[in-house]
Design a protein around this nucleic acid. Structure first.
Lengths: 212, 212, 212, 212
DNA sequence: AATGAATGAGTTTTCATTCAT
DNA sequence: GATGAATGAAAACTCATTCAT
């Protein structure tokens, strides 16, 4: 969730009304994220979300036209945050720094602070049923584009597009599974392995750590 | 075969039209799969499923105690099939045959025969909210166990458990994403890349195919 | 339930088919009585009743056109039995024998064997909604008629009709409440008191038993 | 006043339109009473009750968690009213005033004001299946306690508890039967007879009115 | 005749959304 | 703007009844 903050707080500042509005929207989104993860989309009633945010249902509908709209916005922010995070990390990557930067990125992603795959999992199916489907589908593509850029900058010797497609799925899948289902596996060893997997696949050398 | 509680109870009586019952259960499951994928879990009402199967709601409830039970059974079958497929393929793997066998397995998985990731995606969130959660979570573990066996048989030089965990996620994620979202990418090149990824990660040599 | 047997077993004897039919009807009625009392009318499904009788629903509908029909028949038999019992007891009543006969009758009624007020209570509301309402409403009247006869035979000095109306309600109410809700009160003392109440009301002398 | 769980919870918040809520609860209870009596418990669907009250089903469920809850509340009110009435009448009874007070009480009861035995009859069976059974069973006990008090105050020479048990059933049964089934019998003569029955049973003298 | 699987109308109940205050 | 009571469409599920075997 932390991921999805930066982008926002931009416009509007003076009018206390707008400030209140913003605060309410934030409160609602955070409450919704909590309730969605805890109860699942179906059981997350708008009343419950509003209550969790400390406001009335009526107010919720003042800011979001529907329950779906909340999910869409939540997913959008989540994804934007994720893309921004990855893009920022990979901004200055090159052949030499590739390994360490990947490692750092993986560490970021594996911190529950930087990513909330449980939320993603709850939302994805619902949002895809939405008219916002189009918009949402761009997400992986945007991530891929960032990766393609990094591969190009590192002059990796493989099909950049295909590799980016694969890498996005690989990393997200492992990270999500670890964070949601196997927090026990969230260790430096895992980071090592994933780094080795990625760097090796891309074709750069990695010194193997001797097996325990 | 195991078809929820009620069906079992029904099957426990003599066996009058056991055939008809079985056919009905199959029809219901297939209809449910279709409706779940097409409409999403929420919109897939029991009435709609029954209608799609050409039977009455009452009959549906004769064989499944609830909508969730259908989802659970569907997921169970899907996963059982997947585990069986992988286990069969890897049965006689060794260091030498590792590469080709992995390649063949990937081909199988990418053929989407017997694999329906769209369905999987619709079900997973819902079923995880179910009491069947435990049973379902065992799926990845079972797959991992199979992989661990293969790694051991191939005498791979890495942490078998951790590697198995990673490989299961990696392969499933890429395969499912391709099948569901990017059928265009479903080419021999993809198989090559994935094979290379897996074999390379496990530490066996792969001859790089020259980049196009 | 025992009350409601005598009247029936009349016609038919030879044909084994009819015998089986009769047996089935009996089994169904007894099973229904049990299930109605135990579960209440609403929860007493026809399947459950059939199962309790050891037959199939289909067979149930062979003999009774509807669930209501079972209730109606049950109530009819119950009431017929009760009227018959009371009539038999009061047949030869006169001013002298009035007290002892009333006492005996009360003893009969208070034996769970002779009366099943719980069943009566479950059925009455439902059956009154039935088209059989008319027929059933005659019950109290028939009992009253019997009582009127007894009062006349005993040459009691009061409004026979009004007294009969009152006595029927009084006795049934107390008996039902005792049997259903307060079996602990089902003692000789109760019989004494009720006898005294009735005999006193009718205007005949009763020797008061000294208070404990 | 005590209006089921949800209502209480609702009432616990500030008190916005407490009035409207109360009015709605009243409307629902009255509508329910009407529908229960007219259609029977089974046919009295929550939708029908809500419609009869001129509100939506949703509102019904805002105030009552279930159909049973309505029945329970209705029965509770009915019984509370009855106990209060009897208790008020008997408050200052003594040996001398016993007869006239009983007569007045019977008149009250037979006026059917505040007494609705038809409703009572519909509800009793259903509510007894409820978890509220215990509470409801307390009703007769409370009435009996009031009667015991009256008998003691009047220094009646009999087993107070047993007599109270009997008297409660006797009076209620006759009164209810008259009101529901034989309004024609609702005459001064009936009051006389019942008074005579009660007073005679309790052991006080009653001057017999000469028979018509 | 007996069986019990199949039917589907009808019930209870929930919850996204509206709107009077 | 904020509130939360009211709405009512829609869903899950039951069970009396039918009918093919």
């Amino acid at each position: 969730m932390a991921v999805m903050v930066k982008a926002v707080r931009a416009a509007a500042r003076k009018k206390p009304k707008q400030e209140r509005s913003l605060a309410m929207v934030e409160a609602l989104l955070q409450a919704a994220a909590r309730v969605f993860v805890k109860e699942g989309y179906a059981k997350a009633t708008t009343n419950r979300i509003a209550a969790a945010a400390g406001v009335s249902v009526g107010s919720l509908y003042q800011y979001f036209p529907s329950k779906d709209a909340i999910a869409v916005e939540l997913l959008r922010r989540y994804r934007d945050g994720l893309v921004a995070l990855v893009a920022a990390r990979l901004e200055r990557v090159d052949r030499v720094s590739f390994g360490p930067i990947v490692r750092d990125l993986l560490c970021d992603l594996l911190q529950a602070e930087g990513i909330n795959p449980a939320l993603h999992r709850v939302l994805i199916e619902q949002v895809l049923r939405t008219t916002a489907r189009r918009e949402m589908l761009g997400f992986e593509e945007r991530l891929e584009a960032v990766i393609v850029g990094a591969l190009r900058a590192s002059d990796a010797d493989l099909d950049h597009e295909l590799a980016a497609f694969i890498l996005v799925r690989v990393v997200l899948a492992v990270v999500q599974s670890v964070v949601v289902d196997r927090p026990k596996l969230n260790t430096p060893d895992l980071v090592d392995e994933l780094t080795r997997l990625v760097v090796g696949y891309v074709g750069f050398d990695v010194e193997r750590r001797p097996r325990r």
